[in-house]
C-alpha cells in the first residue's frame, strides 16, 4: 500500500490514476484489493475464461458449422424475439408502474409496491410451474383464452413471453422510480404555468429525464429474459424450431454430452449479453455526463 501526496481521496494531484496504487490515507488498500481481485478471479473470471479456452479448441469452421445449424439459429431467433417482446411490454408497464407508485396516492399502494419485487424472491421454477398450469388449455386462464378462440398460451411462444414478462417485471419500474422521486418538480410547474398540456409536460419535461433509467431497466430486463431458464423450461414445451430458446438448447446439448456445441452456443449468448451490458454502460455514462453539465 502506498500513501502518496494527496489532495482528494479520489484523484491524485495530477489527476492520473496509478496501477494498483491508491491515493488515500484510509488504510486497507492492499488487503481489500487483494481479497477483491482474488475472489473475483476465482469465482467469475477464471470460470468465465474456461468458455473462451474451450471454444478455442473448436476450429473456426466447426464453430460456424455449429452456430449455423437451423435449429441453433432458430433458437437464437426465438430467444431474441420473445425476450424483446417481453421486455418491451415490461418497459411500458414499468414506466406506468413507476409513475403510478411515485406520483399517485391510493389505497393499497404499498402492497403493490412491495409486490413488484416478487419475481426476485420467488424461485423461477415455482413461477414457471404456476404460469404453465394456469395458461395450459386445462388451466384457469388458458382454458378461458381457448374458449374465446385465442388459444392457450402455454407451450407456444406466447407462453415464453409470459414467463419472461414475469421475471422482468421489477427491472424497469425499480430503475425509474428513484429518478422520478428525485425529479425537480419546479420544471413541471414552470411548464404548466407556461401553458403546456399534461401530455406535453410528460413528453418534453419529464420523459427526457427518465429515459436513461428506462433504457437501462429495459436492458436489464432484456438480458435477464434472454438468459432465463427456470421459469421458461415448462411453459415453452421445447419444440425445436418453434419454442426452443437458446438456454434450453444449451441444456439439451449438455444432456447429450455435446460440450462443443453447448460452448459455441453459450459463447454467442455471452457476446450478446456483453453487448447489452456495454450499451447500458454507455447510456449510463452519457446520462451522468448530461447531469454533470448542468
Amino acid at each position: 500500500m502506498a500513501v502518496t501526496k494527496r489532495r482528494s481521496p479520489i484523484e491524485s494531484p495530477d489527476g492520473t490514476k496509478k496501477f494498483l496504487t491508491a491515493t488515500s490515507v484510509i488504510p486497507g488498500f492492499g488487503l481489500s484489493t487483494g481479497v477483491t481481485l482474488t475472489m473475483l478471479s476465482l469465482v467469475v473470471l477464471i470460470p468465465l475464461a474456461s468458455i473462451l479456452w474451450s471454444s478455442s479448441e473448436l476450429t473456426v469452421a466447426d464453430f460456424f458449422a455449429t452456430i449455423a445449424r437451423r435449429r441453433v439459429l432458430m433458437s437464437f431467433w426465438v430467444s431474441i424475439e420473445t425476450a424483446l417482446i417481453a421486455s418491451l411490454i415490461n418497459m411500458v408497464m414499468g414506466l406506468i408502474m413507476a409513475w403510478v407508485l411515485v406520483r399517485y396516492e391510493f389505497p393499497g399502494k404499498r402492497l403493490l409496491d412491495g409486490m413488484i419485487e416478487l419475481p426476485f424472491a420467488l424461485p423461477t421454477v415455482v413461477a414457471g410451474m404456476a404460469l404453465t398450469s394456469l395458461t395450459a388449455n386445462t388451466g384457469l386462464i388458458g382454458g378461458a383464452l381457448e374458449a374465446v378462440g385465442i388459444g392457450a398460451p402455454a407451450y407456444t411462444r406466447a407462453g415464453i413471453v409470459i414467463a419472461m414478462i414475469f421475471v422482468g417485471i421489477p427491472f424497469v419500474a425499480r430503475s425509474i422510480q428513484p429518478v422520478l422521486e428525485k425529479l425537480d418538480r419546479r420544471a413541471e410547474e414552470a411548464a404548466f404555468i407556461l401553458g403546456a398540456s399534461p401530455w406535453q409536460i410528460f413528453r418534453r419535461v419529464i420523459f427526457p429525464e427518465i429515459r436513461p433509467a428506462m433504457l437501462v431497466g429495459f436492458g436489464l430486463a432484456f438480458a435477464r429474459s434472454l438468459g432465463e431458464y427456470g421459469s421458461v423450461v415448462f411453459i415453452a414445451g421445447n419444440k425445436p424450431f418453434q419454442t426452443e430458446i437458446a438456454p434450453l438448447l444449451i441444456m439439451s446439448e449438455l444432456q447429450e454430452y455435446d460440450y462443443a456445441s453447448a460452448t459455441a452456443i453459450a459463447l454467442v449468448m455471452l457476446i450478446l449479453a456483453f453487448l447489452i451490458l456495454f450499451a447500458m454502460n454507455l447510456i449510463q455514462s452519457q446520462a451522468a455526463k448530461r447531469v454533470g453539465e448542468r
Partner: peptide, 29 residues
Amino acid sequence: RYRYFGYKIVNTFIDLPLSVSPVIAGLIF
C-alpha cells in the same frame, strides 16, 4: 475508498454474473 487504475473495470466485472444466463453459469463450472 480508493481510486486506482482499473477500478472501473473491476466494478464492471463484478456485475458480470448478472448478465450471464444461469445455464451458462452452470456450463462454465
